[in-house]
Design a protein around this nucleic acid. Structure first.
Length: 209
DNA sequence: GCTAGTATCTCAATCTTGTC
DNA sequence: GACAAGATTGAGATACTAGC
């Protein structure tokens, strides 16, 4: 008396079991073909190959009637368990992929007020909740120097000149204005030509150095 | 790199069954 | 019996793999 070979372990491939699972779930070769984007012929041949490998009929097809044999029930149960296990692994793999963690050093100017900036930080945190930001407030020139030393991953500053080794992207368009007191001769005056201002006594500050 | 074998697919023809 | 829907079969194409 010979032992029954391990047909499921040794001979079956996942592709055939997968097709078989869909056939049973859909209750029709035709519907399975539509679901799997294959032809009816391919489905029929796959089922035939699976039955040949197992050595037994799995599905009784007599016209409109469609039902599983005892062996078919067992194979279907096996295919569902394998499918469930693979789905679990798939989920774990996706979780691993999204579990980026660590700390990003972010160098910024003081008083950045921008909905885009806020949204950027918010979206990043939603996507990578395990990533922390270490935010340091510095001058633009210092930010650029540290970026060139590859210390932070990201810097936000004001740059009048761009360095060839850094990549720049506009984050915010800010407006600057002149302010003067009501005692000043410029108060309420409108200027269209900035050159006129250069000859006057003004308090100036440099924003990027 | 070439060749043979295998697996899997599509296409077209044919068969089977149910419905009118 | 005619027709439609679903299933099967055979031929051929393509992709992959192992052996040389």
């Amino acid at each position: 008396m010979g032992m029954r070979p391990n047909v499921l372990l040794d001979k079956c491939n996942w592709s055939l079991l997968r097709i078989f699972r869909v056939i049973v779930q859909e209750g029709s070769l035709n519907k399975a073909a539509i679901k799997l984007f294959l032809t009816q012929s391919a489905i029929s041949q796959s089922l035939k190959r699976l039955e040949e490998q197992i050595g037994e009929t799995l599905i009784i097809r007599t016209g409109g009637k469609f039902y599983l044999t005892a062996t078919g029930e067992i194979v279907f149960e096996a295919s569902m368990m394998i499918y469930s296990q693979l789905m679990d692994y798939e989920e774990r793999l996706n979780t691993e992929k999204n579990s980026l963690s660590g700390t990003i050093k972010l160098l910024v100017l003081s008083r950045i007020e921008s909905t885009r900036y806020d949204q950027l930080l918010h979206d990043f945190h939603q996507k990578y909740p395990l990533v922390d930001f270490q935010v340091d407030v510095l001058k633009s020139k210092e930010i650029q120097q540290l970026l060139l030393q590859k210390i932070p991953a990201l810097g936000i500053g004001i740059n009048q000149s761009q360095h060839s080794k850094l990549k720049y992207q506009t984050l915010i368009n800010q407006k600057y204005a002149l302010f003067c007191s009501d005692k000043h001769s410029l108060y309420t005056k409108m200027f269209k030509v900035l050159n006129k201002l250069k000859v006057m006594d003004l308090f100036l500050f440099r924003v990027s150095n």
